[in-house]
Write a protein that binds this DNA or RNA. Structure first.
Lengths: 258, 258
DNA sequence: TATCATTTGTTCGTATGTATC
DNA sequence: CGATACATACGAACAAATGAT
């Protein structure tokens, strides 16, 4: 049994002791932790101290707490679900953006909106420019991982194409439409991590202490003009975005557009 | 002032009320929240309840608490620091992996290690194969963002090259050495998000409620054989990894190696 | 330099509600 | 239904950091 002799706050010592217990295998993955009252007896501390320690382990994602049952050691993610963020096209001009393996949970929801302080600069448009927003909720079949996808199509991009009438066209097909209208397409993407907002936590069914993996992709057309903005949000603990990188010879070409 | 009348636990109501206050601008970014005792008076609840509410807002990353001073509304990140994850090479055979803009905080630490259950499969090696591990701690100058970088060089890759004597060669130069020894290089990278371990929190100087952005890059040589494994860990809230994507015509070539 | 009020951190105790089995 | 376990809430006391006096 891990003794508590480290310096610092009591509840931190208790948390560290339990962390040790998990690391040493005293509390194997999936097994229940001792109950609060057992921990009180064991470490001779008060209930708030024990609860404080448990809260810390929860925030670290080490344990899962079920009301009325107990605390359980979270088992390590089986293996990260890979989300392919590469783009391929076949000889017929069809594009594949990796959505093929996913399962659409709801019908796409379309609404008209405007660029704001965040999306405007990314699309190199003034604030308040009109655009279509298409939200989709996907699931990776079997894995229980959800993905929220948002596609922003500025009116300037959609007009003159079939996107103006059907912005909820399949994302891969959207690329094809733009390519057919004479654009030489290029993409830049950023990946970041942050804590979910309360509504994201429910929509993506995120457990405690799981951050959101948030990717932003911009589709560039001729003269490097931004045509589309795509955002993908998913469970950062379970899913990984995968990229293929090839070395480019010119430093100029390699610069990622802001 | 936001009243507390929503259903549910008291501390959640208080948290929601403060959240509203932040959203409506009653508590602007950077400004101090009322002190605990003021919140007690205002909402007529006990101190533990107030502290519980504050803990929730902290976990969401909405506020920052300073011992002895008070709680402050966190201002949204000025603009995400972009970490260029593309690779370029010039006509002289030099490689640039994006490390040029970073500032090395400590001398690289080198040690000998072995493949384990995680790194082994990624490098397509058995468990227990010998390798060099090179750890570097970088900082993005001025931005206060730290990056922990680990480079794993299997002995099989290093032997016969100057890497065997100097595994702490500059990462870009490592690519060049492998290319000079006859390899056609290709890279695959994955990005994921998770909560930091306690030691990562201190090493990367992460504030509360900030996840780690964790990227894993594999350098492939001839016959798609894995040569190197690189890991980058940084503040997911402040930093974004940026990628350039180009469409590949063959679906076969586009598959990201596991 | 030293002291003091303010503010958050930690710890204890206790009581009641609610979910699970 | 009862036993167990976690959730919520209140009260109280002292410690530690901060900033002003």
């Amino acid at each position: 049994m891990a003794e508590i002799q480290r310096p610092g706050a009591l509840h931190r010592q208790v948390a560290a002791a339990i962390r040790d217990g998990i690391a040493t295998g005293e509390y194997p993955a999936g097994s229940p932790l001792p109950s609060e009252s057992q921990l009180i007896d064991r470490y001779q501390v008060s209930r708030p101290t024990v609860r404080n320690a448990i809260a810390a382990l929860r925030a670290e994602g080490l344990i899962e707490v079920v009301h009325g049952k107990g605390s359980f050691v979270r088992s390590a993610p089986v293996s990260g679900i890979k989300i392919n963020r590469t783009i391929t096209k076949d000889c017929k001009g069809n594009f594949y953006a990796g959505f093929e393996a996913w399962n659409l949970l709801e019908e796409p929801s379309i609404y008209r909106s405007h660029t704001d302080g965040t999306t405007g600069p990314l699309l190199e448009l003034d604030e308040g420019e009109a655009l279509f927003a298409v939200d989709r909720l996907w699931e990776i079949t079997g894995a229980g991982v959800r993905l929220a996808h948002r596609l922003l199509i500025p009116f300037a991009t959609a007009e003159g194409t079939e996107l103006a009438d059907a912005p909820d066209t399949d994302p891969g097909r959207v690329y094809a439409i733009l390519a057919e209208s004479g654009h030489e397409l290029a993409w830049s993407e950023t990946a970041s991590a942050r804590m979910p907002l309360p509504d994201e936590r429910t929509a993506l069914e995120l457990p405690d202490a799981t951050p959101v993996l948030h990717t932003t992709r911009i589709t560039h057309g001729n003269e490097n003009r931004p045509l589309l903005l795509e955002e993908l949000r998913t469970n950062g603990g379970l899913a990984q975005a995968t990229y293929r990188i090839t070395a480019t010879t010119s430093r100029q070409l390699a610069a990622v557009p802001d």
